[in-house]
């Protein structure tokens, strides 16, 4: 399957990265990792790219890691449409000190606007 995994540096996005890379190694997915600018993340995009490349190398798969500028949600949807991805994978939400899960604005935008299936990784 042709999979687009969007990550911005939050904890849940790294969990999504690891699980998607793992799955790609088993299922032979055609995986692209898009590093987006998440305004809620304190991690530098360069470091996120490095983290993604390390995960890909460790899994021994052939996946592209791409830095994407501009509004994260709309860029992911646009890339998925233009390049005919079949699925978009994102982090499953931020967990508060209380244990409450909140879905961020990027995930909300992608869920409502993508034409592909969207997976949120828990």
């Amino acid at each position: 399957m042709k999979v687009l995994c969007g990550i911005g540096g939050s904890d849940d996005s790294f969990r999504a990265l690891d699980r998607t890379v793992e799955r790609a190694a088993v299922a032979n997915d055609d995986l692209t990792i898009a590093v987006v600018e998440n305004p809620d993340s304190s991690v530098d995009p360069e470091d996120v790219v490095e983290r993604a490349e390390a995960a890909v190398a460790e899994a021994g798969i052939d996946a592209e890691v791409r830095q994407v500028e501009g509004d994260p949600g709309s860029r992911l949807v646009e890339i998925a449409e233009r390049e005919e991805f079949e699925e978009i994978v994102l982090g499953g939400g931020h967990t508060s000190p209380m244990g409450k899960i909140t879905i961020g604005s990027i995930a909300e935008f992608v869920l409502l606007n993508a034409k592909t299936s969207v997976t949120l990784v828990r």
Partner: peptide, 18 residues
């Protein structure tokens, strides 16, 4: 938003935290 969690084990883990 995911709480309270389901199942006694996860309930106890959650209660330990809060």
């Amino acid at each position: 938003q995911g709480i309270p969690p389901g199942g006694e084990t996860r309930i106890r883990e959650w209660l330990d935290a809060i």
